[in-house]
Design a protein around this nucleic acid. Structure first.
Lengths: 201, 201
DNA sequence: AGAGTAAATGACCGGATGTTCAGTTGAAAG
DNA sequence: CTTTCAACTGAACATCCGGTCATTTACTCT
């Protein structure tokens, strides 16, 4: 046997990433073997190594691409609200975060659960990207305190509290469930507003 | 070789659990081998099977004991505040949850990260215990709405939002860091109060 | 001192793991 | 039609895995 009919290198490379994303999100990096990923693609195990050097690099690539896409998406969303006050910026962030995380449950799951399976160097890079994202929210909160519309017990703690609260949506939200994605975002925005604002309207 | 001097069965059984807890919390269930756990105890791999039937049972026992201890600790704490209003009960819950989770980072990490490595039956049991704990907070929020002191966008969503926000403390809190455990609990209590109360005082 | 037993060893089983690579195949280029 | 080459196979490698078990050792009881 050798090359199969209709096979293309570029699409196989993408299929490997997609299969890895699906399987790792469902069962965990350490519990998924390269042979399982290959089988999901419909290819032999050796083929995977034509597109990635090793398993660790595969995980790192998945997480890196997710974090970069998240940061780019937020920059684009943030640009839409240029010039708006901290209060509106915060609501924009909440709706963006909830919406984005709901729409990419696999990537989010991997990014939050597989950090400890990264090598030291790779971990440092992903952690850095996560820090950038956190800094974006922190900047909004900082601005709100300067503007006088927010009152927070502690800036860093509140930043992390909000992100943890919002990201938690991925553990229970299911499309077609009791609440729509918009309703969910509405509710979280409401909670965050009351948690941060100096005076409740 | 055979039995080593000074060895006792009961203490070895506990040492196996402790070693498993440490290693699984640090590197994940699937990434830790029975041989590594045995080495951490200072014993050969076969010895572990004198105390547990298999690896799955070991994970289940760790999670079960953690969840039962958590529920019992909350029942004891809750009894201390018998008769108090929903507002005080909520603050008591927040302080308890933060304090308990800070003091047992390994168990918490395992309970939240290794759910997917449980067999179907074991998962159902642990998920049931988690549901009990969630129900305890939900009952407080429900009571507060009946009393008129809380105003929430959605009961179930708010319950999960609060738990996710509070549990997030385990990802960043370190003893001896910038904030003391009491300060951290103070801040979270403040955030939750403003998030839930009908009017901010 | 001798018997009995609890505690632990260490070799072993079948199978899975990440990774490599010489060889095979299909399709495009001349 | 022949050459060329990217794409893929399938077997092999060394190592590790969870789990079993006959055997050995240390302690206790009589």
């Amino acid at each position: 046997m050798g090359r199969r009919s209709g096979s293309k290198g570029a699409s196989t490379a993408e299929a490997v990433q997609a299969a890895a994303r699906r399987l790792i999100a469902a069962r965990g990096f350490a519990a998924v073997s390269m042979r399982e990923i290959a089988a999901e693609v419909g290819v032999q195990a050796g083929t995977i190594y034509l597109y990635i050097p090793d398993k660790q690099t595969l995980l790192h690539a998945l997480m890196r691409e997710h974090m970069c896409a998240l940061l780019e998406a937020w920059e684009a969303e943030s640009a839409l609200g240029a010039g708006e006050g901290a209060s509106d910026a915060l609501e924009r962030f909440v709706r963006f975060h909830v919406g984005y995380h709901i729409s990419r449950p696999e990537e989010v799951f991997i990014a939050y659960m597989e950090l400890r399976n990264l090598s030291e160097t790779n971990f440092a890079e992903i952690e850095g990207l996560r820090g950038c994202y956190e800094a974006a929210l922190r900047a909004i909160l900082e601005r709100g305190m300067a503007e006088g519309c927010f009152r927070l017990p502690d800036l860093r703690l509140t930043t992390r509290a909000i992100i943890a609260m919002l990201t938690g949506v991925t553990t229970w939200y299911r499309a077609g469930g009791r609440l729509s994605a918009v309703e969910v975002a509405d509710h979280y925005a409401d909670l965050v507003r009351r948690m941060t604002h100096a005076a409740t309207p």
